[in-house]
Design a protein around this nucleic acid. Structure first.
Length: 118
DNA sequence: ATTCTGACAGCAA
DNA sequence: TTTGCTGCCAGAA
């Protein structure tokens, strides 16, 4: 390989691409957290980067279920980035989630941890 | 190269 | 209990 593998093993592509990749793997009707994704990527503590990556996910031609990514409390901290502040909640409710006060009810039950599932 | 920012997470008051 | 400060890392200006 060229420079990609020489940078560091496991970081074949940009951080953003990896975030998109993991996010796409989140099953329908399940949710995960920024920190969980960050941890899965091997950069625990860089959960902020995950959110920032998802911020640019709209540029990605593929569908990225960014609405299935919430913070560790199950709160829809990124709802403001879906155009309308209610879009994220509606998307989640459309998948069977119950959202109350910007927080996903049964968050722990629907939680999908890439570390465990992958 | 340097500086700033960011959809978090953890811990201290 | 809530509020706020810090660390974290990669990307953009």
């Amino acid at each position: 390989m060229t420079k990609r593998s020489s940078i560091r093993e496991g970081r074949n592509e940009g951080f953003f691409s990896r975030v998109y990749d993991v996010t796409r793997l989140v099953p329908y009707g399940r949710i995960t957290s920024y920190g969980a994704i960050a941890r899965y990527l091997g950069t625990a503590g860089s959960a902020r980067m995950v959110g920032w990556a998802l911020n640019s996910s709209h540029c990605n031609p593929e569908f990225i279920p960014a609405h299935r990514v919430v913070n560790r409390n199950g709160m829809l901290t990124g709802k403001h980035h879906f155009g309308n502040s209610t879009t994220m909640q509606q998307l989640l409710e459309n998948e069977g989630f119950s959202v109350v006060d910007d927080r996903v009810v049964d968050f722990t039950e629907k939680f999908w941890d890439p570390m465990t599932e992958l």
